[in-house]
């Protein structure tokens, strides 16, 4: 399997690039990437989500990927993940969808 980054496409056709390993934080995305479906070429269309939501998702995936290896005890270096209140419900749904 290639290590190319994958591209996530939002409802309004905005594209977000994310490294393959970061995307695989989400089991859903992982299954998509690893399967031999249309999306396995590296372009995953997520027409559910607005671009600002998808942007946040990508941000979170990177955040999670970056810090998941770090032990929880060394908390000083793990910054809070900022979630704007007005997006919370939409993100909740997205998280549910992506299984994260």
């Amino acid at each position: 399997m290639s290590q190319d980054p994958v591209t996530l496409v939002s409802k309004d056709n905005k594209e977000y690039e994310i490294s393959r390993s970061a995307a695989m934080v989400s089991p859903t995305l992982k299954a998509i990437i690893e399967g031999s479906f249309k999306e396995s070429k590296g372009r995953i269309e997520l027409k559910e989500f607005d671009s600002h939501i998808l942007e946040k998702i990508v941000e979170y995936l990177n955040y999670n990927y970056k810090y998941s290896g770090v032990d929880g005890d060394e908390d000083e270096d793990i910054p809070e993940f900022e979630i704007p209140t007005e997006m919370s419900l939409e993100l909740l749904l997205a998280a549910d969808y992506l299984n994260i």
Binding site: I32, S36, K38, E48, Y97
Partner: peptide, 15 residues
């Protein structure tokens, strides 16, 4: 024969 199948679409349907 899954090359033309969109995982996301099916997933979304099941969802």
């Amino acid at each position: 024969d899954m090359a033309d199948l969109s995982f996301e679409q099916v997933y979304r349907t099941i969802y």
